[in-house]
């Protein structure tokens, strides 16, 4: 392989592969929460983005507190240490929220659209609470080592023109996502409670006539969802920064991921997350430099070679969503038809 090809591969990895994997893992974790709630409780939970913001806010505050006490786990970010406590708090808040809001509508056997409207209300409440407590601005809570490999070091090491940088937050995202997904699938496939959740999602009528306690299944679903949301939100916040509004914006790509993969289907949520993430990264990347390496000299284009400006990145999820709903409404893996 000549150096141009290797440079092109490194460039591709640095700007598409690594960011795509990271963002894909974050979307997948978010979409899993949405899909679990849809599968078991049978409604689209619009509050999911703001539940993520809430959980992450708790992480940020505990992180600050730990930092003020001088407790850190460098080179890893302190936020990881704050996660367990924050997860417990957001689980409790999520369960309380279910008791106070959603359970009432379950008792009344309300239609899914009523639940969706209720969840929109919950979204505004969480949104308000977060802004009230921590404010609408950007908050930084990252500490510890920033990079696993820096571009400059990579160049020195390999002698290539192009550098590859991998941030700690990116590495963490991917590793944690793999562990979480493995644990979740083990839980759903192997444990009695996990099977009860799948059974409930398959056929609620029948689940009610088996030794399955629906309120327990619902509670476990919220507990898992709260954990996933808090972790996904924290990983996203470590990778970018914590700003409440961005979590609301993530709602569209997360829902797109869940629906593209087949809503109600956990495997689908993961695949959907990566499909959306890579589409977004690939479509908004400027290929000029890549083509300089990839095509013979003199053929290189003058323009940026960018299909869509990053300002429009949310349009990508939207387009994919519309396409999937037109061509295959059940998603890539057969989910529930909505």
């Amino acid at each position: 392989m000549d150096t141009d090809t290797i440079n092109a591969i490194v460039l591709f990895s640095n700007f598409i592969l690594v960011p795509g994997m990271t963002y894909g893992a974050q979307l997948a974790l978010g979409a899993l929460g949405i899909t679990l709630v849809f599968g078991v409780l049978r409604f689209a939970n619009f509050a999911h983005g703001d539940m993520m913001a809430f959980g992450t806010m708790i992480v940020v505050m505990i992180t600050w507190w730990f930092q003020s006490l001088g407790i850190t786990i460098a080179p890893l970010p302190t936020a990881l240490l704050a996660l367990p406590l924050a997860i417990v708090i957001s689980m409790s808040v999520t369960l309380l929220n279910d008791r106070m809001i959603f359970r009432y509508y379950r008792k009344k056997r309300s239609s899914p659209s009523t639940f969706v409207i209720a969840s929109t209300g919950v979204m505004f409440v969480f949104n308000g609470i977060v802004r009230f407590i921590i404010g609408p601005d950007d908050q930084r809570f990252t500490d510890g080592e920033r990079f696993i490999i820096k571009a400059r070091e990579f160049k020195k090491m390999t002698g290539l023109d192009e550098g590859l940088s991998i941030k700690v937050s990116q590495g963490l995202t991917i590793v944690i996502a793999i562990i979480l997904v493995a644990a979740l699938f083990w839980f759903l496939q192997r444990t009695r409670t996990g099977k009860a959740m799948r059974a409930f999602s398959d056929n609620e009528d029948l689940a009610l006539l088996s030794g399955i306690d629906p309120e327990r299944v619902v509670a476990i679903t919220w507990i898992i969802t709260a954990a996933l949301a808090t972790i996904a939100g924290t990983l996203y916040g470590l990778d970018k920064s914590f700003k409440p509004f961005t979590y609301f914006q993530l709602l569209l790509p997360m829902f797109a991921s869940a629906i593209v993969g087949g809503i109600g289907n956990p495997v689908g949520a993961i695949v959907g997350g990566f499909v959306i993430a890579f589409s977004e990264v690939i479509i908004t990347y400027a290929y000029k430099k890549f083509l300089i390496y990839a095509v013979p000299p003199g053929w290189a284009p003058d323009g940026l070679m960018q299909l869509l400006s990053t300002d429009y990145k949310f349009a990508v999820s939207f387009m994919i969503l519309v396409l999937v709903l037109l061509i295959r409404p059940t998603g890539i893996f057969k989910g529930k038809v909505i």
Binding site: K195, A196, R198, A199, D202, N203, D205, L206, A207, S210, G211, I212, D213
Partner: peptide, 18 residues
């Protein structure tokens, strides 16, 4: 009615409570 994504054995094993 059945739990369509569970196996026959799992369907049966889901019945007993507690």
């Amino acid at each position: 009615h059945e739990f369509s994504s569970l196996t026959v054995r799992e369907n049966l094993m889901m019945v007993p409570a507690n």
